[in-house]
Design a protein around this nucleic acid. Structure first.
Lengths: 260, 260
DNA sequence: CGCGGGTTTGACGCTGATCAAAAACGGTGG
DNA sequence: CCACCGTTTTTGATCAGCGTCAAACCCGCG
């Protein structure tokens, strides 16, 4: 069952498993798991024994303050793992499904053991963690130093490029994003009302179109300018983040079309 | 020379090198390097072939926007490494010495090779990257969702605890911090003027004292309350971050008991 | 003694928050 | 197909937190 699951894993080479020989893939003893949108994979402060690899759908990591203020830390896409910790203490943040998601649960302790024994695996893990950190840094300068309009534009571009890396967008520049404006607000440190105004402004400028969870980028170059020049970094990136470049997977991965 | 340097390395077990047997430490072919405050270890957009392990002093990572806005991403202390990337592309941020620093330069490619061959090393690297990411997440919620006063208090507490983990503070709660208020501002996403007002407020409330780069925390518990409850996470942490727990260094560093 | 960087304080303005309410949408059951 | 409902989006009016501008002050240093 596991072996079979792994053999057909849609994100096999993108994820931590990488090119582990099939018989060695004992990372995932539990069967694939499906969760509905809105469910928590794990909650803030929970012990968190499972690491989840996302096979399909979107997940966000978030942190809550006592009075209910929420910060979204990261949007995780298929191929990403969430919930990894080197130790077994409780997680300082929670993880919530933004759409229906399909997950491959991995025992944390098992993954840690395997990583301590297998340099390739540990290094892939390090690369994924590096990517997460680099993304967090980008978001930090966005939230810390950019205006509301710039922040919203930056987030759209970030999602745009991250999605594009996985799925070559076919017609035009359309993003299927399962986010409400409140999600966007919590990710960029604004209120939903103000995010709405900024989106309206972008729409009015003819830079984007949206409705129904579908965003269409009409003028990527203008979005670029608006987002601030450091966003050029994103465009400079290769089609896949570096963690994907490390193993031999030359070209095998084609994620199917997103269809939430 | 190298071997000797390593044998007396002040952060030997804290850093990536960990318990690599002494003869294997070929990570650091270059001699220890000293830089003056204000110098860049490497600049934003630079290729960055060196990874630096900090032996002494403070370094900050920062990102500049075109118009000069700056975001400080991370304060690196002795034992931390800065400049690691899995690939050889240019760094999206720069690193600057905040005080005179003493560095151990490590060849990036060599480190990567070594990590790909040595699971223990790779895993230690992963843990350090995890710690950095976790810290970035904390800063994200601070900047994204907290008020000015809370942000400043949060940063002070963070530095306080991080320093304390390394050096058990002896008398009272004094922090020797080589930061200007502008640095603090760039780290928490405010202006220097407003940071000043917040520090003044904390001083006036009798929570802290400062002057001349020395901060004294008079009422840690009140700083806690002000910083927002999620800061409790910090107190809950053990004396050392998890990456320090992984190798056999059982007990060298003891932070004193918390006394709020 | 004068210079330059850092700190401190005040006055004022703007970006983005807050409050409120209407409109649009999607799903559900009749 | 339509009425109903909760959620999300949209828009307006007002407010306040923080930024901006400016000047004074402080201190170490040449």
């Amino acid at each position: 069952m596991n072996i079979d699951t792994c053999r057909f894993c849609p994100v096999r080479l993108q994820g931590v498993c990488g090119d582990l020989p099939t018989p060695e893939i004992t990372l995932a003893p539990a069967p694939v798991q499906v969760m509905a949108a809105g469910q928590d994979l794990f909650s803030q402060g929970e012990p968190c024994r499972q690491v989840f690899m996302i096979l399909d759908g979107w997940v966000c990591l978030y942190e809550l303050l006592e009075d209910g203020r929420r910060q979204i830390l990261h949007f995780a896409l298929p191929g990403d793992i969430v919930g990894f910790r080197p130790d077994s203490r409780s997680s300082p943040f929670g993880a919530q499904a933004l759409s229906q998601v399909c997950l491959c649960p991995i025992s944390r302790s098992r993954l840690v053991e395997a990583a301590q024994a297998n340099a390739g695996l540990a290094f892939r893990l390090a690369c994924m963690l590096y990517d997460d950190g680099a993304e967090a840094y980008e978001r930090l300068t966005s939230i810390g130093r950019k205006t509301a309009l710039e922040r919203v534009a930056t987030l759209l571009l970030e999602l745009f490029y991250r999605l594009r890396r996985r799925v070559p967008l076919s017609r035009g520049e359309t993003l299927q994003i399962p986010l409400t404006q409140t999600h966007i607000a919590d990710a960029v440190g604004l209120t939903a009302v103000h995010v709405n105004r900024m989106l309206g402004l972008l729409r009015q400028k003819g830079v984007i179109e949206y409705g129904n969870g579908v965003f269409r980028i009409l003028a990527p170059s203008r979005l670029f300018e608006i987002a601030g020049a450091d966003a050029q970094v994103m465009a400079g990136r290769p089609a896949e983040p570096m963690s994907r470049h490390l193993h031999s997977s030359s070209s095998c991965i084609q994620a199917g079309p997103l269809s939430h």
